[in-house]
């Protein structure tokens, strides 16, 4: 089958593909084989990795360690150096701050609101786009296109759509005879509105991962099942979805991490309001670190949040490992 640009790109980002190659051919590298491969290529491999490793050390590992150190000091952004030693003071402060817990909950609530639709809808649209007989390129592009927009552009478009009384959505809702919800102004509704925007915006990424996964499902299985009398729904339920399991694990973990890292939409669309109802934990860190100049306390809050993300990722890895011992 001729591959389009979209699947070509996705193939490079989806590790699930190479995995399924090895499974399909029915062999997995044994421990000894793996070791031989590594020792044989050790030095040149390291050399080739060196430019990347250097930058990685300089810009990721280095600052991360510095941040960890900083979290034990009363570091101020407007004073050079680390400042006074604080011990676990910053951690105690952040852990006892109701604002920290409230913002952490907002981030988790956002993750709960966005992750399921971003996975289910991406799968549904990928299946639909795959089944389109004509203009398949158009559907693939249409769903992916919002993803390439910068967050600021997306936010500005949606702010106008959500504007009470004058915005596009309120006109649409009121003309249908419903009372207009206050999309971004109602503390109970603002997070839902942000989630809707985010689903529209970032659906394309998961969509492309699923499209790539769909290319890996062998055609023969569909043909064989059709001969056995399986209908389209049975094919989806019993062939496509189970064979996409690896893609799904990847999509879920990437999506949870992406949702936990939410910042832009709130920062631009609601500034964490109304009345702090949408302040994410990253904005809380921004507020104390940049607005209040308290880098040390902000570093402690970031470290705690890092532990949360790490725990979620580790939990998911363990779960999928149990399911797929080779992963």
């Amino acid at each position: 089958m001729a591959s389009t640009e979209v699947t070509g790109q996705a193939g490079t980002v989806a590790p699930a593909r190479t995995e399924s190659h090895t499974t399909r051919s029915g062999r997995s590298p044994s421990g000894a084989e793996r070791e031989r491969r590594w020792s044989g290529h050790g030095k040149p491999a390291l050399l080739f990795l060196a430019p990347f490793l250097l930058l990685y050390l300089l810009f990721i590992i280095g600052p991360a360690i510095y941040g960890l150190v900083m979290s034990f000091f009363h570091t101020s952004m407007v004073n050079p150096g680390l400042g006074e030693f604080a011990g676990f003071g910053n951690y105690a402060e952040v852990l006892s701050s109701s604002d920290f817990w409230a913002s952490l909950w907002h981030t988790i609530w956002f993750t709960i609101l966005t992750t399921p639709p971003l996975i289910v809808l991406a799968l549904v649209f990928a299946l639909l786009a795959e089944r389109a007989r004509r203009g398949r390129w158009f559907f693939r592009l249409a769903f992916f296109l919002p993803y390439i927009l910068p967050s600021a552009v997306v936010a500005l478009i949606w702010i106008w759509m959500y504007t009470p009384e004058l915005g596009l959505l309120s006109r649409a809702v009121t003309s249908l005879g419903f009372a207009e919800p206050d999309w971004l102004g109602d503390p109970d509704f603002a997070m839902v509105s942000l989630a809707v925007t985010t689903v529209w915006w970032t659906l394309g990424f998961n969509f492309v991962l699923y499209l790539a996964g769909l290319q890996e499902v062998p055609r023969e299985l569909y043909e064989a099942s059709a001969i056995d009398g399986a209908g389209p729904w049975q094919q989806i339920r019993l062939i496509t979805v189970p064979l996409l399991a690896r893609t799904t694990s990847l999509v879920v973990v990437l999506q949870i991490i992406a949702s936990l890292k939410v910042f832009d939409q709130m920062y631009i669309m609601t500034q964490g309001g109304p009345n702090f109802a949408t302040r994410s934990v990253l904005q809380y860190i921004f507020d104390i670190g940049f607005t209040d100049f308290r880098s040390g306390a902000a570093a402690a809050a970031s470290t705690l949040f890092f532990i949360v993300v790490l725990a979620v990722s580790a939990f998911w890895l363990v779960m999928t490992r149990r399911q797929e011992p080779e992963l």
């Binding site: 964490g272 009345n275 507020d287 607005t291 209040d292």
Partner: peptide, 19 residues
Amino acid sequence: GSNFVNIMGSAVGAVEAGD
């Protein structure tokens, strides 16, 4: 643009919005 303004304004705004 400070957190003081944010704390005061958020609470006043919530009163005006009826929340």
